[in-house]
Amino acid sequence: MLSVNLFPVFFLLALFPVAFFWFRRVYRILVKRDFSEVALKKGLPPPNAEKYAPYEMVINLIAGTVIVGVIIAVLFGLLEYQAWIAVAGSTLWIKLFASFALGRQAHGLGPKTKSEGNQEPR
């Protein structure tokens, strides 16, 4: 009887849409000049999203390229299971942390405070 561990298969299949979405973001930033998905915080881009667009594009381009490289390496048998799972998983996490950090940097750190002239009376 054939026994197949399904986790690697599902993880490999999940890498296809992940790479597609990351490359779609690169295309939107580079070609369409659409900055609506740049440095998001709570689903909203910063007011100066164009300033942070090159960084977001590079993050997505590098991560997407690594994921496509992993997919190709797995399909051609160039990487063993432990190696490609480690590379793909690390890439996913690093990309998420990098985009999160860029979003926090673009929106400013800490809560927004009201200026002294606009405070409500107590």
Score class of each variant (00 low, 15 high):
K42P: 01
F35K: 00
Q105S: 13
E56I: 00
Y81W: 12
A86S: 10
S36G: 07
A53C: 03
L92D: 02
A73G: 14
F21L: 15
A53L: 05
R24T: 05
I94H: 04
N5I: 15
L96Q: 12
L2K: 11
L61F: 14
E80W: 00
Q82G: 09
F76C: 08
F16P: 03
E37C: 02
A88S: 01
S99I: 04
S3E: 14
V26A: 00
Q119C: 08
H107A: 01
G108Y: 04
L2M: 09
G64I: 05
Q82L: 13
A53Q: 03
P47Q: 15
L15G: 11
A73H: 03
V58W: 02
E80D: 08
F97H: 01
K32V: 15
F97V: 02
F35R: 00
A101T: 03
L2N: 09
P8G: 06
I72W: 00
E120H: 14
F100Y: 11
R122Q: 15
F23W: 10
R33Q: 11
K41I: 08
V31E: 04
N5C: 12
R104M: 13
W84P: 07
V70D: 04
A14R: 10
Y27V: 09
G77V: 12
M57T: 04
Y55S: 07
K112Q: 11
K114N: 11
V18Y: 12
